[in-house]
């Protein structure tokens, strides 16, 4: 049976809220760290954060939906971020994205049903010298072709 770490996570959240309770401007770092603990920001989690920091839920929700880094739905085990920056665009970035979409079977911003992949695009990874580029989890992969990109992804668990 899989071990449940729920209590562990709740404990971490409580500590986090305690630490930032009286810090002005803490909402964004708290959301970032809470997302790191739980993987995504569920409605219950947003409620708890609002209560813990004494910020109206409407504002917490407003901030969580404003920034692209925050996710309100569960995410895949592997996060693919395909760069759509200018340099990548002029060197075939959209073809790389198309090929990945076909392989993973989801649209940009979606997660595959088996939770294996989440596919996202980013405006620029700042590795323009290596265009076209993508990030698979923490690794930056450069000088891609559609084939090369799909091969990299196929290796993911």
């Amino acid at each position: 049976m899989q071990e449940c770490h729920c209590e562990d996570k709740q404990m971490k959240l409580a500590q986090l809220l305690l630490k930032y309770k009286d810090t002005p401007g803490a909402l964004i770092p708290v959301l970032q760290q809470a997302q790191e603990i739980f993987g995504y920001l569920s409605p219950e989690l947003l409620r708890e954060i609002s209560a813990g920091l004494r910020i109206p839920l409407s504002r917490t929700y407003g901030v969580a939906t404003f920034y692209s880094q925050f996710h309100l739905k569960p995410r895949g085990r592997n996060i693919i971020k395909v760069c759509q920056g200018t340099a990548c665009h002029v060197r075939g970035g959209s073809k790389v994205l198309e090929a990945i979409k076909r392989y993973v079977g989801v649209e940009t911003g979606e997660t595959s049903e088996d939770l294996r992949f989440t596919l996202e695009t980013v405006a620029c990874l700042g590795a323009c010298g290596l265009a076209p580029v993508m990030m698979v989890n923490e690794e930056t992969e450069g000088q891609l072709t559609p084939d090369k990109a799909v091969k990299k992804i196929a290796d993911c668990e």
Partner: peptide
């Protein structure tokens, strides 16, 4: 050090300040 949360408009000065204050940028 403050980490951004993914909003291009936060490169604009007043939006960046709003973001540090914990608001929508």
């Amino acid at each position: 050090l403050k980490e951004g949360a993914g909003a291009f408009v936060c490169g604009e000065g007043t939006a960046l300040q709003a973001s540090i204050e914990g608001l929508r940028g």
